[in-house]
Amino acid sequence: MTRRVPGDAVLLWGIPTETTLSRVELSLRKLGAPVFVIDQRRIRDTALELESGAGIHGHLRFGPWFADLDTVRSFYMRPYDSRELPAVVNATNNKSLTDYALRTEELTSTWAEVTPALVVNRPSAMAANNSKPFQTAQAASIGFSVPETLVTTDPAAVKAFQNQHGEIVYKSISGVRSVVRTLTSEHDDRLHNVENCPTQFQRRIIGTNYRVHVVGSQAFACSITSKSTDYRYDSACRVEACILPRHIETMSINLTRKVGLEVSGLDLMKDLEGNWYCFEMNPSPGFTFFQDRSGQSVDAAIADLLASGRRSDSPPVTTDRALSPGQLAGQ
């Protein structure tokens, strides 16, 4: 027997047991919002159809449930790579189910791109995360300082960059998570490996780390104290809620709006001279690590945004003052 998803529903897509998604779902239910979760693992139970004509129309079937996508209020996306889902990996006919999962993922992303409903976040807006150098340029255009940066496959260029700037760090240039490490003499024997993988190198900035979660027109900031180059891998790091200078808060919101995101997680640092640097911006932030340590309610803010169904279409706010961006180099 077919059961209809309530009109004006908030759709969530991902793994229901994943902490970030489950926190948002719980917050939405506390608000009394009509919520429907599409469990990405149940790919065999999922069918989505789109029709084009005078606009894009579609519907979703999930098990016994039916949803008219034209009536959806908002959509929160936290999908995993469909090819890595247990139901796909362990399937007897793996290729057939993989193809179906990828087609379903593509259709879902297509609908998320064109629907008038609020989407957190649209695939086109999240695409900037695939290029860290591009993100750096966007941050500089808003007024953030950025570290001197080199993206290269030339070991000699790396050594020259290191000689020029002293202590430098390296990281992936893509959206794939990587550990930020300091380049030392211990890496000399392996430095030739950059010939096979374009790598981003930056002058190391010394200062205080900040994580800023932007949700619509709100900014939730935390300061992070850590002895590690990459605090994400420091279990002893200290996270505390803080208030940003007004112009830094405004710049954080403006950067999020500039790329078309409704929610973001910015990695900032205030150096010893008081300059504010932006290292990167996560378009699908797993905020629970910071929320659990700071006491902030990012999940509730996202739930409020989704329940409202209102997009952040207002123009960027003028900052109180601009910061001079650092040098952005390339080779």
Rank of each mutant, 00 (worst) to 15 (best):
V263D: 06
A33H: 10
S314A: 11
S172W: 02
Q200D: 02
L244Y: 09
G14N: 02
Q202K: 08
T149A: 04
N209K: 05
S27K: 14
G286K: 01
R310D: 12
S22N: 11
V119H: 07
R4P: 00
L244D: 08
D313T: 14
D292N: 09
D230R: 02
R203T: 14
N90W: 04
A307K: 06
L28W: 01
F289Y: 10
V146A: 03
H165R: 07
T152P: 02
L150S: 05
A300K: 11
F289I: 12
R41S: 12
G166T: 08
N282H: 02
P285R: 00
R83C: 08
A117N: 01
D39P: 13
G274L: 07
L26Q: 13
K159G: 04
L266I: 12
I142N: 02
I253V: 15
I38V: 15
S27D: 08
L183Q: 08
S324D: 10
G260V: 06
M1L: 03
A303E: 01
N129P: 00
N275H: 12
S294L: 01
S297V: 12
N129K: 05
K30S: 14
L328E: 03
F144Y: 09
T104S: 13
L255W: 15
A157V: 00
R293I: 01
R190F: 15
D304F: 09
S217C: 01
V317P: 03
G326H: 00
P133T: 06
E113Y: 09
A67L: 03
E25K: 11
F290W: 07
V146R: 05
M251V: 06
F144E: 06
D271A: 07
D313K: 09
F134H: 12
V35D: 12
I56E: 04
N94R: 15
I43M: 06
K227D: 15
T318R: 12
S82Q: 14
G260K: 08
R181F: 11
D68K: 01
M281T: 06
R29A: 02
N129T: 07
V212L: 03
F161V: 01
P79F: 09
S82K: 10
L12V: 04
R177S: 10
Q327A: 13
T108N: 06
T318W: 00
D154M: 01
G330L: 13
N93T: 11
Q202C: 03
